[in-house]
Each structure stands twice: as structure tokens, then as C-alpha cells.
Amino acid sequence: MAEAPPRRLGLGPPPGDAPRAELVALTAVQSEQGEAGGGGSPRRLGLLGSPLPPGAPLPGPGSGSGSACGQRSSAAHKRYRRLQNWVYNVLERPRGWAFVYHVFIFLLVFSCLVLSVLSTIQEHQELANECLLILEFVMIVVFGLEYIVRVWSAGCCCRYRGWQGRFRFARKPFCVIDFIVFVASVAVIAAGTQGNIFATSALRSMRFLQILRMVRMDRRGGTWKLLGSVVYAHSKELITAWYIGFLVLIFASFLVYLAEKDANSDFSSYADSLWWGTITLTTIGYGDKTPHTWLGRVLAAGFALLGISFFALPAGILGSGFALKVQEQHRQKHFEKRRMPAANLIQAAWRLYSTDMSRAYLTATWYYYDSILPSFRELALLFEHVQRARNGGLRPLEVRRAPVPDGAPSRYPPVATCHRPGSTSFCPGESSRMGIKDRIRMGSSQRRTGPSKQHLAPPTMPTSPSSEQVGEATSPTKVQKSWSFNDRTRFRASLRLKPRTSAEDAPSEEVA
């Protein structure tokens, strides 16, 4: 009796068929016929556990003709996506030579605008209408194809895939403007070719909807975003200037109206006075309405000098805001240009540092100066060695804690006790272990408590650290204090090793 083939788990290929790579489910599931010992083939499952149809090819690079078809379809799909992405970037994010197409579109729109203006002049109306009709045909074809291509290429973005995504893309403001202008152009052409009475009025009214094509030149909205950011950044200043200017306008108009309503027919109503105030304070000055009385002229002159300053403030605020924003954008561009080279330089330096163990090129690091100058660790070890030599091999803490019996001779020589300023008595072995921070803190506390006492003391002649007598400086308080830590004499004296002298005989010792 033939044995059933062993159940295979995992992703390994079956024996005897090495080139074939078959994806098997996580659990080997066989058909009921196979479990019962029949000759049925096992049921194939996909990666998600769903059964595959009987005629479906197995996924994998070596699955025969199905694999070749899959490779061809995958390559075609990649080319399709690449083309779609390229078209989308050309239309929505132009760079380099892609601006040539947008310059061509701008020339078409500008020519249409010029011809629309010439069509309103009686001398050039006939020729402009003929040229404009031909140009409209060209623009309908160009913009119609462009609109379709834009909607198709938007599928390269995830949020615009599918018919719902394309509809979302078509609802964008600039796409809506394109659609309105396209419909208006078709209506103008249809009305112009019919030759009816309505054609002339339709051409004159709907052609100027094509002015909206100038708005579509900035599809990404960079200028509007820049203007919005400047207004938002200086909103408080703008609101303040406009508010005060509006108050000056209504008060000036009302007072001039009261002064001129009886003697001047131009100011017969408050609305006429508001019109005069707006034209005057905005420095336009049509001259259609002028005050005639001396009181009205004085009020107009005073409020004009006051109001023009507030009406001119928004222009200066926006101008300075634009300058600052442009400078910030230039700085951001320079930062973006330098970020990648800086990151590459840091990575290269780290690779060199991690692979080169000698690091002989590091001549400006802490390790280099640590090898030249005595390190703080060596100074600490030197302090501890000196203290243990004086205390008979014991550390200062051990000397303080060691009990001394009554009447027993002390094995240590008597030492002079010292007192730290602002604290109780402490171990004499710690007097010379006072660090730089303690010395600086002690000097600052003395300056806070009594700076007036220092200038009363007789001035001391500054001497070099080499000429100081070591026996005289029994305490860190003898170090000359200065008002600034930048004094080199104080810094050098604080680094010197001060020996400890006994109370009975204080021989001067120098520590090399």
C-alpha cells in the first residue's frame, strides 16, 4: 500500500521540484479525499487562508506561464504608474523644462484676455472677434484635454484613487474654476456660431469669465498662502490700524457733515460726507466734493493729517511682513540645501571615528588635552595620597570615625582645627580638600554678606603664586578674593596644593 505523501509545513519547496517556489498556508490543510486516503489533490490556500480556484496559477517567480503573465502585467503596471506620476508632476508640480508648457498656457490665456479687451473697442471689434473665435476653439481643445489628463493623473495619489477620489480631486477650487471656464468657452462658441440675436450679448458677457483663467496660473496657491501667512502673522497690528482709521473716518465725516450741510449742497446727507471722507483719507482725492466753510476746511485738514497716518499703516505693516517672510523662506531654502550635506558629513565622520582606533588626527579633542595637561583624576589621586601619608595610611573619614581611648597616647600629631565659614567644625583632613566650587561659593557668600568690609582692609600687593609662602596660607580663606572669576591669580592660587600645619609646630611643606 502506497504511503501518503508527508504533510509539508512552511514555505519550503517540495523535494524533486527545486526551481518551484510555492506559497503554502501556515497550517497544512488537505482535502477530505486526501485525509481519507483517496487520490485527491490537496486544496490550495492563499496567504489569508482563502481557498484558491482550481485553475488559478500559483503565485511565485517560477510558476510557469502564469508567472510570465504576472511579470508582464507587473511591468506594465509599473510603467503605467510611472507615467501617471510623471504627468501629475508636470501639471501640478512643474520643475525644470516642465515650465515651458505652463508658459505656453499663460501666453494663450493672456492673448485671449487681450483680444477680449480689444473686442470692446469699436475700431478693432470685428478683427478681434474673428481672432478670438479661432483662439477659443484652440483653448477649448487644449483645456478640455488638460482637464481630463489632470483628473486621470491624480490617481497617482492615494487620496485621489478610484471614482470617489477623482470626484474629490474635481471638487478642488482650481478644478472648479477650470470647469466653469470650459463651460463658458463652449457656451460662447455655441452662441457665436448660431448667428442669432443673442450671440452678441452672450459673447460680450461670458467672454470675461475667461479672466478666471489668470487665476489658474498659480494652481498651488503659493501667492495666496504667502499673503495669508503675512496677514495672520500681523493680524493684531492690522486690526488696530484699521480700527483707529475707521473711527477717524466716521468722526471726521460726521463733523464735516454738521459744518457743511447748510452751506454746501455736496454734503446734503451723511452718506455724501462718508464718501468724501473715504476718498480723502485714502489719499485718492477725486475733487467732486470739497468743503466751502472755514470750519469745514479746518476739520477736514486736521482729520486728514490724523487719519492718513492710520490708513497708511497697513501698507507699511504688510510690506515689512512680506520682507520678513521672504527672508525666512530664503533662510529655509539654505537650511534645506545644507541639511543633507551636513548629515552626510556627520555620518562619514562617525564611520571614520568608529573604524580608526588610533585617531591620531583628533588634535583638538579632550583626549588630546588630557594627555598634555594633568587630568583631574590625577589631581584627586594626588590629594588622596598626600592625605593618607599624613594620616598614617588612613583616609580622612576613617580618621574622624576612629575612637580614641581616654589616657591613651595619640598616634597622630595634634592638628589645628579649622572652621569653614557658615558651618560647624569639620575634620581637619578636609581643609585642604576644598575644591574650586567651594572656594568660589565661599567668595560669593563673603561678597553678599559684607562687601563694604573688603574695601576697608589695607590693599594687598598682588604677587605671583611662585613667590607666595606656603606656610602662610594655612586656610583657603587666605586666598585673595576677587569680584570676578576671570582673575588668573585667584584661579592659579585655588589650584595650588595647600599643606596642613599642626598647632604646635607648623613646618612648611611643599608638595611638588
Rank of each mutant, 00 (worst) to 15 (best):
A271D: 04
L274V: 08
G192C: 13
L318V: 13
H102D: 04
G277E: 03
L212R: 01
L274R: 00
A300V: 03
V186G: 06
A323T: 07
L247P: 04
L324Q: 13
H334N: 10
H330Q: 14
P94A: 07
L295P: 09
G277W: 03
V256G: 03
Q329K: 06
E260K: 03
S320A: 07
Y286D: 06
W163G: 08
G316R: 00
K261E: 05
W275C: 04
A154T: 14
R297S: 04
I284N: 02
G319D: 13
P173R: 06
G296C: 00
L274H: 05
F169I: 07
Q84L: 06
K261Q: 06
A202E: 10
G49S: 15
G296S: 06
F267V: 09
P94T: 10
R339W: 05
S309Y: 11
E260Q: 00
A343P: 02
G296V: 00
G162V: 04
V186E: 06
L295R: 11
G321C: 00
V176F: 05
V256I: 05
A304D: 09
I279L: 03
G321S: 03
S153Y: 12
T278S: 01
Y270D: 03
G155E: 05
R166G: 08
E237Q: 08
S309C: 14
G144R: 08
T282R: 01
E336K: 07
R338G: 08
D266Y: 02
V109A: 06
L91Q: 15
T240I: 07
M217K: 00
L274P: 02
K333T: 15
L318Q: 06
F267Y: 12
F246L: 12
W275G: 01
K289R: 14
A241V: 03
V100F: 08
L238P: 04
L281S: 05
T293S: 13
A304P: 01
A342G: 10
E328V: 10
Y243F: 09
T278K: 03
D288N: 03
R207S: 15
T282K: 11
D272Y: 08
Y286C: 03
L227M: 06
E328G: 13
R213P: 04
R150Q: 06
H234L: 08
Q84K: 13
P94S: 15
R207C: 04
F322V: 11
I279S: 01
V231A: 01
W224S: 01
G307S: 05
R338W: 09
C112W: 00
H234Q: 14
Q122L: 07
S265F: 07
I244T: 07
I279F: 01
L247Q: 05
G165C: 07
I211N: 08
W276S: 04
G34V: 14
S235T: 10
R82L: 14
G38W: 13
R161P: 12
Q210R: 00
V231G: 04
T283A: 02
F311V: 13
F251V: 02
G165V: 02
Y286N: 01
F198C: 11
T280K: 06
A252P: 00
S320P: 12
V141E: 11
A342P: 07
A190P: 03
I317M: 07
Y286H: 00
S253P: 07
V230E: 00
L47F: 09
D288A: 00
K337T: 05
A312V: 07
L318P: 14
E92V: 15
A304T: 07
P341Q: 15
I197N: 08
I279V: 09
P13R: 14
L118P: 09
V298D: 00
G165D: 04
S253Y: 01
K337M: 10
M1V: 14
E146G: 02
V230L: 08
A241G: 04
L226P: 00
N264H: 11
T278R: 05
Y257N: 01
V230G: 01
D218N: 11
I284S: 02
L249F: 14
D288G: 03
L324R: 04
V103L: 08
